[in-house]
Design a protein around this nucleic acid. Sequence first.
DNA 1: CAGAACTTCATGCAAACGCATACACTTTGG
DNA 2: CCAAAGTGTATGCGTTTGCATGAAGTTCTG
Lengths: 168, 168
Amino acid sequence: MSARSAALAWESLFRAQVHLMRQFEAAKDFRPLSSREYDVLFTLSGSEAPMRLRDLNAHVLLSQPSLSRMVDRLAAAGLVRRSTADDDGRGVLVCLTGAGAQLQKEIGRRHVRSIAALIDPVLTEEEQAVLTELTGKLKSAAGGGGPSARSVGGPSAGSVGSAGEEDR
Amino acid sequence: MSARSAALAWESLFRAQVHLMRQFEAAKDFRPLSSREYDVLFTLSGSEAPMRLRDLNAHVLLSQPSLSRMVDRLAAAGLVRRSTADDDGRGVLVCLTGAGAQLQKEIGRRHVRSIAALIDPVLTEEEQAVLTELTGKLKSAAGGGGPSARSVGGPSAGSVGSAGEEDR
DNA sequence: CAGAACTTCATGCAAACGCATACACTTTGG
DNA sequence: CCAAAGTGTATGCGTTTGCATGAAGTTCTG
């Protein structure tokens, strides 16, 4: 019977995500990027050290080949830089360029305003905190994504925004 | 300052959605469909009467042309049927065929198990209810999506699953 | 230390997507 | 009642995506 409850929660979570994302895209929050491209820049902005392609791929809802090519395009646009990991010959490291970091911040600031404009009117600050906590727990649900062991202290260090400043 | 809180909530919500969806896709929950195709069948399954294309489009994160072509493909596969609205010559109505409804149920059952398997271990039933409520409120955030006026009592009637049975 | 098994990333290719726009129908205003 | 504006869907076209697979590097095993 609790399957029903879980299914309802997922359905509601999913629809809320769709609805909000739709608004953000209608408001052109991410221009001149796509939301997925911004997601990559944002994720990179949250990491001090360059990030492995496979770690990036864990955060983004994209297949590995698609991410590989997206990073190509972002590099061609001068927003990120690629290099090969020295401790692992097959690994590819990605980091933001100056232009990439700047664009991310610019979009981020705009986006945070959009987020607040939609969420603040319908959820109190306390409710927002509860939502953050509950969805946070969901991320620890089984699979490869959780706060597991991989890569000593690099990528997953301070994973929330460059300093809690702007946001995705 | 509450912008920070809202941004954190959205970031967390979004990442949770990505993480869970990734698991569902890895588990091949939606096969032989894509998650987006299933989403369309699921949405249709929640509506008694045939649904207008534009109403469908409000629920799915897809551009109008993409949805139009997806419905083409689903119709070609015998899963949905198209017809023209009699009260509006340009409107297109879509409904499930028998095969479509059956496939939706089949996938739905599998999917609900997946959902429960991931969520039940990390959220109590009460927490799940809270999550449902908070995300439900988010759907009423400004835009075209909320429980607004459009189309008398048809599509948006019993919008949660065919009987609260299975899920997206 | 050689070879099998595994991991990580790139590439060929067909399918699917979004944007801009055209088309059909409906409603509005004179 | 007719033109103008508006709404709902389809189509052309270039781009992006995913799947299957290949190539390069690493780790495990005997």
